[in-house]
């Protein structure tokens, strides 16, 4: 499975993103921010890469601020 991660400006958004994605049955997980990326909030959301557009629009609708989506190598 190819994964991506979404970074957030603060933990509030990371938690909201996790909750709203799980409510839609998407298999996401909060993980520590990979070392090569940097985000101060400490955690990011690991997502199935192929779902990134679905999740991006869902989170926009739920007023979740994002700081970028990255492919997880």
């Amino acid at each position: 499975m190819v994964y991506g991660v979404i970074l957030f400006p603060s933990i509030y958004f990371a938690l909201r993103a996790e909750k709203k994605s799980k409510e839609k049955g998407l298999s996401v997980r909060l993980i520590p921010v990979p070392r090569h990326l940097s985000s101060d909030c400490g955690v990011c959301l690991r997502i199935p890469w192929e779902e990134r557009e679905v999740i991006r629009s869902l989170l926009k609708e739920e007023k979740v601020k994002m700081e970028g989506i990255h492919l997880l190598e």
């Binding site: 603060s10 933990i11 520590p32 921010v33 909030c41 400490g42 955690v43």
Partner: peptide
Amino acid sequence: NPGRSGHLLSI
């Protein structure tokens, strides 16, 4: 401490 540190308990 909530959300400051990224570990399990902080989350």
